[in-house]
């Protein structure tokens, strides 16, 4: 499938090319290529162990891919020429007046959030459980606050610049706590929250870093149907009101089919389908992968579906 076939409505934001990740003999991700468009919710689905989380870990810098290129664009810079220019150089990014291009696999982990503005949540929630909800959201605003405190010196001396920045940071924290419906518990420890609330707090925390791309690893896992519905609303609002595109790993099809603009399906580390929710729902390979049909029967299933 060439790039043109992917027919994403909007301009690409993230471009993954030939991404391969091996752990010893195990190929967790096998030459995966896909694009996530700006303003879209892109879903990455597949059976357990398909390699979805591994893809996330490569994009957000926790794993260094064995092979492949992961490009991210800010603004309107020309993606292809920009990418080739960075790849040829030994730098991790270039900026033009129209925008910047980042090669995520070259950035050290924390710079992916700090500079490339890709935020993420974790499959097994990682909150600062001994810190309160506001504190969690304040840590997420560490980098701008650090600058405002003149790298601690201004803050120690009580400069007004830092006090104002802190006030703004608290306002932003309140905004996101309200948005995820946790404002009343702002001063409680994060570890005391019920599971579903912890998931939403983790999303709020990631959003406090002002990301252009938010990667969510199974945000609906363990949620009840009512909470899933609320989550759908939250994800749409993040896309529509905050200009943050989303990349979503999810098993809950009621979430995936409802909110995604574009779906990529992985099975044993290989991409088996890529398209709109409609296309994916009727794709025989996807059905076979999810039902666990082996190759011989696949033809039968295909015949049935197309009949």
């Amino acid at each position: 499938m060439s790039t043109a076939d992917m027919m994403t409505s909007n301009a690409p934001l993230l471009q993954v090319e030939n991404l391969t990740m091996r752990f010893g003999g195990l190929v967790a991700v096998n030459s995966l290529s896909f694009q996530a468009a700006k303003g879209d919710i892109t879903a990455l689905i597949g059976p357990n162990g398909a390699g979805k989380t591994t893809v996330f870990n490569c994009i957000t810098g926790f794993y260094k891919p064995t092979e492949g290129r992961i490009g991210l664009r800010h603004g309107e810079a020309d993606f292809e020429t920009g990418l080739n220019a960075v790849t040829a150089s030994d730098k991790a990014s270039i900026s033009t007046e129209k925008g910047s291009i980042y090669l995520l696999e070259r950035l050290p982990d924390f710079r992916i959030s700090k500079d490339a503005r890709v935020a993420r949540t974790f499959q097994n929630i990682r909150l600062f459980s001994g810190m309160t909800l506001v504190e969690n959201l304040m840590v997420a605003q560490h980098n701008p606050l650090m600058v405002a405190s003149n790298f601690t010196f201004g803050g120690l001396l009580g400069f007004s610049r830092y006090r104002e920045a802190e006030k703004a940071a608290k306002e932003k924290a309140s905004f996101w706590l309200n948005k995820v419906g946790l404002y009343d518990r702002a001063d409680n420890p994060a570890g005391d929250l019920p599971y579903g609330d912890q998931r939403r707090l983790e999303i709020a925390r990631a959003m406090c870093t002002d990301p252009v791309l938010l990667c969510l690893d199974e945000p609906a896992a363990g949620l009840n149907p009512r909470e899933s519905l609320l989550l759908n609303g939250l994800l749409r609002s993040i896309r529509d009101d905050h200009g943050t595109s989303l990349l979503l790993i999810e098993h809950d099809m009621s979430v995936v089919m409802e909110v995604s603009d574009h779906i990529v399906v992985l099975d044993y580390g290989t991409k088996i389908a890529d398209g709109t929710p409609k296309q994916i729902q009727t794709d025989p390979k996807v059905i076979a992968a999810y039902l666990g049909v082996d190759d011989e029967e696949l033809e039968k299933v295909e015949a049935e579906v197309s009949a």
């Binding site: 710079r111 959030s113 974790f122 600062f128 990631a206």
Partner: peptide, 14 residues
Amino acid sequence: EALREDEIACKSLG
């Protein structure tokens, strides 16, 4: 303190 709580989450927040 965040580092004490969870180093990986710290990295993911930049």
